[in-house]
Design a protein around this nucleic acid. Structure first.
Lengths: 238, 238
DNA sequence: AATCCAGGTAGACAAGCGTCTACCTCAGAA
DNA sequence: TTCTGAGGTAGACGCTTGTCTACCTGGATT
């Protein structure tokens, strides 16, 4: 949960961590009082002003740090997962040529990415609580910022699906729509994952199925049903 | 946005409406001050205590009213939409027998339900803002209550899909999972719908596609792909 | 060696807060 | 007709709040 050691002044980080903690356990950011925050951080109330103009600025700082921390690792994981089925730099057969192999790759990437994502959620629950809370919170500034974060995530996902050929070819728009939906759902589910530790495994499975269904359904809807059916039948008999 | 005329004391309704308004425009429920609320409602601060123990109780009252208002109409609409393709009391052919007709029915119900839902959102934006905000808010009580609301919605949806045979047969669990995902997504999208009036039509279409993809994907995943493909091909040539 | 200034503190202020007790009012039950 | 109790008000209480001005400190810059 702790923020990364960086060039941030100590007090600034203390305040950010206190905000994360209070936000998760007690109240949303905009219901937080400056003095309460300072108390939690063990600092003088005025110290807040040395680092932030207002709570939005604090929120933005937290969001930025968190985003930087998770965005790149997620992309790398997708690559690793894809390579674990087909070694890197192997020319990738088209879905039409080898539907079975491609489906296996996609399934593997799906499974591993979901797992990593939830691992990260479990390690940084407070960050996700804050993110999801403020995504629908009262501050338009934070809402906008978090929507952009999710948008970036979705774009990354779409790029990776494209690049790693994780599903039959699709228009850019449709692909992005799917990525957006998946991203939204994953963030939603991360709350359940945090709040119901005893159901974590089920939630993982649910997430995988949701993603698979969405992607498959979209493929069918765009005329790639036959390819998929081929892959699936071969898969079931193996 | 206004709450229904009912047996509620006037002051109670005034307070609930003030809470809706302030929540939507300014701050989340738990960041609301009692005096501010009373001011907005044009009442004495103490009047609050005559009706509610605390803000959670207020929130619960609002949520309950809203749920009663939308739950039944949604169910009825699904029936009407289904009947507009196949008249009531007609014995419904199985998907295997007549995939094309069933797909048409499902598509119609999908389209009309999405439309009705968003219409209702547009009429009661503040209620949805409050609902979505508090679904991820700081109060565990309201979170739990709203999760139950969404759960009920999902169950209704699953029941209707079953009863109206809106998709090929599926295990109850899988069907419920899908309904849950769709419900979650619809609530998410309702925020976008409210905040981006100029994109309302696109959001409708996006929602329809999302639902179709999910349902089709799930059908494929559970071995009903062939039926679907048949229906689709016949559809495309018509 | 002098200076600067980012980071942190101290105290004070008026304003707003939640909540208490006490009082008013008036429709309907007795 | 009297009584009662739900709905609403008034004033006061001690706290907490955000923010202001002023001051301290110690490492880097000159």
């Amino acid at each position: 949960m702790s923020l990364p050691k960086s060039v941030l002044a100590q007090g600034k980080r203390l305040l950010m961590e206190a905000a994360l903690k209070l936000n998760a356990s007690t109240r949303s950011l905009n219901a937080l009082s400056l003095r309460e925050l300072a108390r939690e951080a063990g600092l003088n109330p005025n110290t807040f002003y040395r680092h932030f103009k207002d709570f939005d600025e604090l929120g933005l700082a937290i969001i930025e740090e968190m985003t930087n921390q998770i965005r790149q690792p997620l992309r790398e994981l997708r690559r690793k997962a894809a390579e674990s089925v087909v070694p890197a730099h192997t020319p990738i057969a088209s879905w039409r040529e080898n539907p079975r192999l491609n489906l296996a790759r996609a399934t593997q990437v799906n499974r591993e990415t979901v797992k990593l994502f939830f691992d990260y959620v479990a390690e940084n629950p407070n960050a996700f609580i804050l993110g999801i809370r403020e995504l629908h919170g009262a501050s338009p500034i934070l809402r906008r910022a978090l929507r952009k974060v999710m948008d970036d995530f979705a774009r990354d996902m779409a790029d990776d699906i494209n690049e790693l050929k994780l599903m039959p070819e699709l228009s850019q728009d449709s692909l992005y729509d799917i990525s957006e939906t998946i991203t939204r759902e994953m963030f939603q589910l991360s709350m359940e994952y945090i709040e119901q530790p005893e159901r974590q495994e089920q939630i993982c499975i649910k997430a995988e199925k949701m993603i698979t269904s969405l992607i498959m359904g979209s493929a069918v809807l765009h005329g790639h049903g036959a390819i998929l059916m081929g892959a699936l039948q071969m898969d079931q008999t193996s």
